[in-house]
Simulated scan of single mutants.
Amino acid sequence: MAETQKATVVFGVLNETSQDETRVALTPDIVTRLKKAGVSCLVQSGAGIAAQYTDDDYAKAGAEVVAADDVIARADVLGFVDRPSAETVARLKAGTWVIGMLGSFTDAAYVDALQAAGLVGVAMEKLPRQLSSAQSMDEMTSQNSVMGYKAALVAANAYGSFFPMMTTAAGTIRPAKVLILGAGIAGLQAIGTARRLGAVVTAYDVRPASRGEVESLGAKFLDLGLDFSKGQGEGGYARQLSAEEQAAQQTAVDQKAAGFDVIITTAKVPGRKPPMLLTKAGVDGLKRGAVIVDCAASDLGGNVEGSRVGTQVTDGGVTIIGAPYLASEVSNTASNLLARNVGDVLAHFVHDGRLSIDLNEELDDALIVAGRPAAESKE
């Protein structure tokens, strides 16, 4: 048996547990995987508890469990579920790599701060998901899949009746009518989960290819009578619609939404303000007791006018759940997938026992390096 390569790159993970976050960017099985690639791991004590991983689990896998200060002082690379706070960035030594969802599409000041600190950032949101070699690194796909699954469960729990048709001695209860707006990774998972729960599911997306995907899962495709034949954006994401297209879409969706009991919205444009798919008029047109789960709710807005993070009930009795943190509510599975994404990104940049940015030009857009724009400078 060949000897395991001696670890020369040190990877560290901090405890990111908060009211909204229970995931961790490293799991014990990835500790073992990285060790074979020449990477040793440091884990802050307690980092995995919320995801059901104890310090002992990490130690048995070969990681060293230490205090946060030790992780920051000794790690060559830090992996994050989201991104390091400004306070954490200020504590990192120059040359440290940070891997995470860095918000590079919209937060230029944050990117500048990373560069000013002399850090090397790998922005997970900029990894080319259409590239086969990068698909195992695609955090957006893995976490959106978990989010879509959980969104259907949250909706079913909040809805005041059954999802499936139920025949009882007291009569027959009709199945819930569920509308999924956005048929990307999260939307498709929501479709599949809602159908397994017995709901009658309809879905809509501006991408032409989505009709076949929706129908392949046994759902109906919502016909708005509109043609967004160029709805496909780069990397498989939906493109940003023009103002005129958004207005036409909103009007049509508002009118169609009134016939549904549950609406789940999942349409995100990575790093940018999410498109509004359901206006206040559409919400007001829903029947009392209807439930909306807006997975795109954020500080930038959501897919539903007036939605915010958390739960609210309108004067008309419609429950709106702004739920951007749903992946964290499936913390164990979400962490398993996320850790694989982060681990594969790290392993890609480890060569001959050292970190190198000059390995694959196809991933250059995701790099944030002091002194050079992404995709231009080399080590």
Rank of each mutant, 00 (worst) to 15 (best):
G218S: 10
A199T: 12
A199M: 04
E234T: 11
R195Q: 14
A219V: 10
Q189T: 11
E234D: 10
R195W: 12
V201M: 04
G225D: 10
S210F: 05
A219Q: 06
A190M: 06
V206S: 01
F221E: 05
A190K: 06
G235D: 10
K220E: 14
R211S: 07
S229L: 02
G198S: 00
S229Y: 02
G198R: 07
G231M: 02
D205T: 06
L222Y: 11
L197F: 13
T202D: 08
D223H: 02
G198H: 10
G212P: 11
R195I: 13
I191F: 14
G218Q: 09
R196N: 13
R195Y: 08
P208D: 07
F221K: 02
A190S: 11
Q232S: 10
G192N: 09
A194P: 05
G192M: 07
G192A: 14
V206D: 01
G235I: 06
E213Y: 05
E234P: 12
R195S: 13
S229V: 08
E215D: 01
K230T: 15
G187T: 10
G187H: 10
Y237P: 03
R195A: 15
Q189P: 08
A194T: 10
S216F: 07
L224K: 11
Q232D: 11
V206E: 01
A203Y: 02
Y237T: 00
L188A: 07
G236A: 03
G198N: 06
E215P: 11
A203N: 00
K220C: 14
F228S: 03
P208W: 05
Y237I: 00
L222D: 05
S210V: 01
T193E: 05
V201E: 01
R195M: 15
Q232I: 05
T193N: 04
L224D: 14
G236M: 08
L217A: 02
R195H: 14
G198I: 02
S210I: 00
G233F: 07
V214N: 00
L217P: 05
